[in-house]
Computed example of a mutant assay.
Amino acid sequence: MAKTQLNVRVDEATADAARERALQRGVSMNRYIEELVLKDAGEVGQTFVEAAADFMKQYERVFAEEFGLEGGGAGGRAASTTRDGQPGT
């Protein structure tokens, strides 16, 4: 993979901390920064997936009612309800 050069400006304390952490890990500064960015991007993606799962869990019944879907979710079949939210038959 081709590499692109980035120039960043940080205060001296941040630069010293980055150098020290890279040294402790036994990697170059370039590799250390690359790992930080990749880790951060992965965490953001995981946060999105978790938020989407929570959303679907909260609104599972609404989607089932709107689109006439049966079941859904880990709990098995969704309870039948009418459009006004009352239990169905």
Rank of each mutant, 00 (worst) to 15 (best):
M1F: 02
M1N: 01
K3N: 07
K3E: 15
T4N: 04
T4H: 00
T4I: 05
Q5C: 04
Q5A: 07
Q5R: 07
Q5E: 00
L6C: 08
N7K: 01
V8Y: 09
R9Q: 12
R9Y: 12
D11K: 06
D11T: 09
E12S: 01
T14K: 11
A15W: 04
D16Q: 10
A17Q: 07
A17M: 14
A17R: 15
A17F: 11
A17Y: 13
A18F: 12
A18M: 09
R19G: 03
E20C: 01
R21D: 08
R21A: 10
A22S: 05
A22I: 05
Q24M: 11
Q24P: 08
R25A: 01
G26Y: 08
G26T: 13
G26W: 01
G26P: 03
S28G: 12
M29W: 02
M29C: 11
M29L: 12
R31W: 04
R31A: 06
Y32H: 07
Y32D: 02
I33D: 02
I33Q: 04
E34K: 04
E34Q: 06
E34Y: 00
E34M: 04
E34S: 01
E34I: 09
E35P: 02
E35W: 01
L36K: 02
L36Y: 03
V37A: 12
V37T: 11
V37N: 08
L38H: 06
L38R: 14
K39A: 13
K39V: 07
D40W: 12
D40S: 11
A41M: 15
A41T: 10
A41F: 14
G42W: 07
E43F: 06
V44Y: 15
V44F: 13
V44T: 13
G45E: 08
Q46I: 15
T47V: 14
T47C: 04
F48N: 12
F48L: 14
F48Y: 15
F48D: 14
E50C: 13
A51P: 08
A51Q: 10
A52C: 10
A52N: 13
A53C: 07
A53D: 10
A53Q: 06
D54R: 11
D54Q: 15
D54Y: 04
F55W: 09
F55K: 02
F55R: 08
M56Y: 09
M56H: 13
M56Q: 15
K57F: 08
K57C: 00
Q58W: 10
Y59V: 06
Y59M: 05
Y59K: 03
Y59H: 05
E60M: 13
E60V: 07
F63H: 11
A64L: 05
A64M: 05
A64S: 10
E65P: 01
E65M: 00
E65R: 07
E66P: 03
F67L: 04
G68V: 13
G68Q: 00
G68E: 09
L69M: 05
L69Q: 06
E70L: 09
E70K: 10
G72N: 08
G72F: 03
G73W: 12
G73D: 01
A74Y: 07
A74R: 03
G76K: 03
R77E: 03
R77F: 08
R77W: 06
S80P: 03
S80C: 11
S80W: 07
T81S: 02
T81P: 01
T82N: 14
T82E: 04
R83M: 14
D84F: 11
D84Y: 12
G85T: 08
G85Q: 00
Q86V: 07
P87Y: 11
P87S: 15
P87R: 15
G88S: 02
T89E: 04
